[in-house]
Design a binder for these strands. Structure first.
Lengths: 249, 249
DNA sequence: GCTTGACCTTGTCGCAGCGTCAACGTTTCT
DNA sequence: AGAAACGTTGACGCTGCGACAAGGTCAAGC
């Protein structure tokens, strides 16, 4: 038999047979005078076993192991392990499909899919075209994807703030500072009002230490032009101060 | 932000971030004087969206598509397609696990897993140490894995032959011819008795044409030493003759 | 005898999504 | 000042072959 014949007989491609030779899974048969590989029925039987095992789902390495110690014992182990692996994959797929089902249900935001916690928060926030609000939403989305899962509590704690209609005016006052200098007189009062609007529940979620020391806080500040940055820094300082007072009282 | 910071913030590895740069998924940020990449919050937000999408199961190409036209419309299509794909995978896994369950149930043969049809046949065949019988089983296993699924009917048709206790004696007479010449006088009578033992049901499954013309028949013959080959060839010819007589009658 | 087409040969690249060196420069802590 | 922990580019590795390149071989038809 030549390679095309044995491949067709067993139901694999010639390329696969050569691949099995290359990785030492199937021994190279003798050659004819013209250099063609000359296969025997033994080879075909072995190749057929390889095909059966790969069809079940074994990797070529596992096939090699199973063929190596030709007791049937190892096969049992490998199959059991494979079944466990498939069961795990099945669970993973089901979980992902559940996530997908939720996402397909919800209206699609332009920021891509969000966690349910954040989606709920944004749902309750009023519609606005304020750039500062948009930036805030981006920052929340970033925190959402940060992966540590700590965002959920924060989002829940922010719910009263989102429902507070006075926040819109504060956002507009922040927008007005986009081109202002760091010494603008509007900074101090706006920061005070913003800090006052933050509900106490949020304080419990704020991480310890100076806010600008953590990478996240510093990076957020860098995202703002000078006057806005001054406002945000003051708000963060004020909140940190409230955390300290609360911790000692 | 430097690369390690943005990676930790979003929850991916630095290597992944560089990979996204390499494939053009995430634009390269400006560099600091020392050559380090300097990331902004914009980059982090974009990277976070990438992470959310890949976590859902999108390929990087699909992520690129979704980010490209930033309507939410394409995302819906991609997600639906992804869900369909996952559903398909889930079915495949379930089917393979069912196959596995059958295999784990049955006693493990040294020839590896067999189709249920062949396993049933070999279950009903008497135990023997005859080399010819072993070779026969190998050939059947080969046919079993040949993949065209045509083996199942043949195996069912062979059931009476397997249960025929006289077959053992015939196998032994075939074994005795292992070293014999092609002109041995025992060839003709053995071939006749073997052919007679083959039940009529088998004839319906034998493929048309001269048996030695098909690759499989010729190859099987080559697997035998001369005298045994002569026997097998005569049996095949005899069966072909019976097929013809049956077809015309 | 010559061409055509269907085989065969070895060797290499490609695929998805990074992990993991290598070999080297920068920053930072002690 | 030295070490540890960052950063840089570049390249190979993993799975299981498919696809191509650049030929050599063989049977059949003209």
């Amino acid at each position: 038999m030549r390679i095309g014949e044995i491949a067709a007989l067993v139901g694999v491609t010639s390329r696969a047979v050569r691949h099995y030779h290359h990785i030492g899974l199937l021994p190279e048969p003798a050659r004819q005078a013209n250099g063609y590989r000359a296969y025997t029925v033994r080879d075909a039987v072995l190749l057929a076993r390889i095909r059966r095992l790969t069809e079940i789902g074994l990797s070529l390495d596992e096939v090699r192991d199973v063929l190596a110690d030709d007791a049937g014992r190892e096969l049992g182990e490998v199959l059991a392990e494979l079944d466990a692996d498939l069961a795990r994959q099945e669970r993973e797929i089901q979980e992902r499909r559940q996530v997908l089902a939720v996402l397909l249900e919800a209206p699609l935001t332009s920021d891509g899919p969000l966690s349910p916690a954040l989606a709920a928060l944004l749902d309750h926030a009023p519609a606005t075209t304020s750039p500062a609000a948009a930036k805030d939403r981006e920052h929340l989305a970033l925190l959402d994807a940060a992966g540590d899962g700590a965002g959920a509590e924060l989002f829940a704690a922010l719910r009263p703030l989102a429902e507070n209609p006075g926040v819109l005016a504060l956002y507009e006052r922040l927008d007005a500072l986009e081109e202002a200098g760091a010494d603008d007189p509007r900074i101090a009062p706006l920061a005070a009002e913003l800090a006052a609007a933050v509900p106490d529940e949020v304080l419990a979620v704020i991480p310890e230490g100076e806010p600008s020391a953590t990478g996240f806080g510093r990076v957020l500040l860098d995202d703002y032009p000078p006057a806005q940055r001054a406002v945000v820094r003051r708000v963060m300082e004020e909140l940190a101060e409230r955390v300290r007072r609360r911790g000692t009282s």
